[in-house]
Write a protein that binds this DNA or RNA. Structure first.
Lengths: 237, 237
DNA sequence: CTACCTTACTTGTATATACAAGTACAAATA
DNA sequence: TATTTGTACTTGTATATACAAGTAAGGTAG
């Protein structure tokens, strides 16, 4: 299979993003001006601006006419939900993943309230459950359902340390571009009580998500339960 | 004060957006092609593409090379949170607002965990509490805190039926461009129990938000409590 | 009838260019 | 000294153009 060439505006986006994530550019810093970026990367202004526009959309920078591109702190998360501790900041904390139900193929029963089409229904569904822990305390419990359309060897892959998004992107050229979500506060039922080791009536955040990808008509679904008593979900909008 | 001219890509964006919102273009329809839009509005492709890019970012359309721009259903909400009933769809339902604490000027005590700078602190804070009801049942309870920087006559305005965002935009040229948020599931304390008429231990969604505006360095803060037992928060990401 | 190819149309990427408008700072002015 | 002006630099808007690449549909050869 031919490797799709990465467009140059995307390369610049990734480059600048990495520099901000690794702390080379800190919050409040100014990025090099558009003209400087043009010269440094042998690109023209529209191309550079496209990369910067993407960084604005993702919340990495703010731009001001006459001033420049101002580096922001936390970016807005696409897909991956960021966490912030009520006391400590995450980062030093140890994040682990425990597979509750290994990926296996079942038939579609539901998709958390989202519609699925006939094609997806006939192909079956890859089902998995994971528990994510911070410092050995469970914080996320999620159920993921993926239509079984041409994803060879998927069920035998390991999902321990690598993110699902990364595997889909690297091995199947599937990128999550956005989606739909429903958010609710609920009280823990028996199953959730067991997973999170909490008492009855403990408040839990529940998010149902439909993830849309770059492959036309290919979506997958996930239901996330989150114990927010020690960590809040944070993000930009 | 001179009225700022609206750029043409934004005019086109608003126009297309309106056509989708009022149902002229329905879910699954194709928008006119870029070249057709160019001809119809006397613009060039880069300008038209900018408007379409914005519609993609807001979740109104998906685009596919070789095919066209496909109209989507619900858009993603900036600032205003959309609701979806578990049984009925919202729309026929009656939405009302009840002012619990009228806008008044107090001193800053907190900003829901977000930082405020010295300038904002010295100017005082406009404080208000509102309750929003659907079919006479309370669903949202929110506290808003706005730095009192040059907002003449703000405390005497009415917030009954008009949205805060609309008033800020129309009268003070303040547009919310994005922000930061923290989401948690909590159980109702006494005050919330009273407002929502729910029992002890009822799960409530709590969102703390910092809203950033087009005026540099001007942000305001809001804390939203939401009873999600009948309505989920929905949105695109 | 089926499989392949061509063609016309679509969006994607990229360059080159021009002027408008906002910001910061230094120089000139009152 | 305090204020205004000018200037250089920044991002914002817009046009014109070219070619690449994906999609759908119709024609053609087998």
């Amino acid at each position: 299979m031919a490797v799709k060439e990465v467009p140059s505006y995307r390369r610049l986006y990734e480059k600048l993003r990495k520099l901000m994530e690794d702390g080379t550019y800190k919050r409040g810093d100014l990025l090099p001006s558009e003209n400087e970026l043009c010269a440094a990367h042998h690109l023209t202004r529209p191309t550079v601006r496209k990369a910067l526009d993407m960084l604005v959309n993702d919340g990495f920078i703010l731009r001001h006419q006459g001033l420049g591109s101002i580096v922001q702190g936390q970016p807005k998360g696409i897909g991956i939900l960021s966490l912030s501790g009520t006391t400590s900041a995450i980062g030093q904390d140890i994040l682990t993943t425990r597979i509750i139900v290994k990926p296996n193929i079942i038939s579609w029963e539901q998709a958390f309230g989202f519609e699925i089409n006939e094609n997806e229904k006939s192909m079956g569904c890859i089902y998995m459950e994971r528990l994510r822990l911070i410092n050995d305390r469970p914080v996320f419990y999620d159920i993921t359902m993926i239509p079984n359309l041409n994803l060879p060897r998927f069920t035998s892959r390991t999902f321990e340390n690598r993110s699902l998004f990364e595997i889909l992107r690297k091995h199947y050229q599937l990128e999550v571009k956005g989606g739909e979500q429903k958010i609710q506060a609920i009280t823990a039922d028996e199953r959730i009580q067991k997973h999170f080791e909490v008492r009855k009536n403990h408040p839990i955040l529940r998010i149902d998500r439909k993830m849309e990808t770059n492959r036309m008509g290919f979506s997958f679904f996930s239901q996330i339960y989150c114990n927010t008593s020690d960590y809040s979900l944070i993000g930009r909008f």
